[in-house]
Computed example of a mutant assay.
Amino acid sequence: MQTVKIGNTNWQTSNIALGIMRMGTLSVPQSVAALQAAHEAGINLIDSADIYGNDPELGRGSSEIHFGQALKQSGLSRDDFYIQSKGGLYANAANQITRYDSSKEHLIAAVDGILRRTGIDYLDSFLIHRPDPLMEPEEIAAAFDELQASGKVRHFGVSNFNPQQLELLQSAVSQRLLVDQLQFGLGHTGMVDFGLHTNMTDQGSVDHDGGLLEYCRLHQLTIQTWSPFQYGTFAGTFIGNPQFPELNRELAKLAEKYQVSKNAIAVAWILRHPAHMQVLIGTMTPAHILDSAAGSDVTLTKQEWYDLYLAAGNELP
């Protein structure tokens, strides 16, 4: 398992992380098996959010409850993992997300809830889950300062923020923002398409993100890529999907060459980008965790990277 430096720090973690959004649907023994498989693969960063899991009895956050129970029963220790979670979404009594909430009060309560559910004393990193149109950067700064001073959070970042939102928040907070979680993969290549279609007027030239990929590289923010095997947003996976025959043929060819799975090749495609991204995988099946993690040790050639990009239905101008 290869490592990646988080932000501009010397904080090194595995370049593949395990997202536990689906852990709330598992039994505790199944959750233990997922954690043990991740540890066996060399994965040492766990990514969560306070809204992950919506068990009828436990409510929202059940994924973190299952994670905390599994960690205690797995034979692994808190120090085996960098544990990261997100907050800033508000759920009503019916467990429906009705607003984004980046107020100081909400963010501090979110972290307290995360620590209680997971049964740990601190988070290695805490991210603002979504940009809040009513965001007041000074309130977030006050929350970050209190959370850091209390020892509850060590590092901070965001998820799904564009460059101007990042600039606005960074102008107020004293901590360096280290992470931006963004969707990226062979089925979601917009950040790359825009750069390739510069000075053109076709669909690929439309900048949906404000030059986000280049911004993160210039400002040393680590991009953590979510839903790496999905096409669209939550439309489904392209792996083994008959809607993507050319892409699956290319994935299979390279999987045979490198003696890994197609999932591992899709991971390796992301990791080949010089932005030094970190891939968040969300599978809870131990075998799939292990076969996806194998992509960490595959270095595609430049031609193979472009072959996959083209096979995914893209073009080079």
Rank of each mutant, 00 (worst) to 15 (best):
S77V: 05
N92A: 13
F67C: 06
R78W: 10
I65H: 01
D79G: 14
E64S: 10
L76A: 11
S62I: 08
Q69A: 13
E64H: 10
H66N: 14
R78E: 00
Q73W: 00
A93E: 15
Q84R: 10
K86A: 04
Q69P: 01
G87W: 01
Q73T: 08
D79V: 11
Q73H: 08
L71W: 09
A93L: 13
Y82R: 15
N92T: 13
K72H: 01
H66A: 04
G75Y: 01
G88V: 05
D80T: 15
G87F: 04
S85H: 05
G88C: 08
G68A: 09
S77M: 03
A70L: 02
H66T: 03
G75K: 09
S85V: 09
L76H: 11
L76S: 09
S62G: 06
A93F: 11
L89K: 12
S77R: 15
F81Y: 14
S74R: 07
S77H: 14
S62W: 10
K72L: 01
G75R: 08
Q73L: 11
A93K: 15
L89W: 01
G68E: 02
I65P: 03
I83L: 13
Y90G: 04
I65Q: 12
N92L: 07
D80G: 11
A93N: 15
F67T: 10
E64Q: 15
K86S: 03
A93I: 13
A70N: 06
H66D: 00
S85K: 07
I83P: 07
A91D: 10
I83G: 12
S62K: 10
K72D: 00
G87K: 09
L76T: 13
Q73K: 15
Q69E: 11
I65G: 02
A91G: 05
Q84T: 15
K86V: 03
S85Q: 06
D80S: 15
S63D: 01
G68L: 00
D80C: 12
